[in-house]
Amino acid sequence: MKHIEIKIGGFGGQGIVLSGFIMGKAASIYDKKNATLTQSYGPESRGGACSAQLIVSEEEVDYPEVQKPEILMVISQEAYEKFTPCLVKGGILIYDEDLVNSVNNLPKETRIYSIPSTRFAEELGRKIVTNIIMLGFFTAITSVISYESMKKSVLSSIPAGTEELNLKAFQKGYEFGLEKVNGV
């Protein structure tokens, strides 16, 4: 893995940019790679289309934008429709099956992984941790960022007092991802 481009899409308020931040921090501060995070959003603070773009590279990142992501993680139908055409051939699509329900017309090479993360989050008692479940899932599915670094990054990026809930959420997504990868 020399240079990998990741895009995360959803609505403002879902923790899209925070997810990108946690991934980027894990890659750059704990995995000691180069990481550049950019974001795009509308004038609304919540509810508008929102995306985070992350480049993780062993070399210095010059051009900061993601045009053809190798990994796409989406948490809304709108983001799915908007961003899947950019996904590279044979790329990885990760989505929340509770919020993205119509997945079709994808090239057959696309590697598709879905998780009911909103439902899992509700089961844990707080819908707000949906994105952290997605991050655990992402960690298990892709090998871009190490498990330990991602865990450290989650813990250092969330409000004090929420560690236990977030760790549970992260672990839930991670274990579900491992099952998917191992075909259990």
Binding site: G20, I29, A35, L37, Q39, P64
Partner: peptide
């Protein structure tokens, strides 16, 4: 805006 909103080490 790109530099202001960009996150890096």
């Amino acid at each position: 805006e790109i530099v202001g909103h960009m996150t890096e080490k």
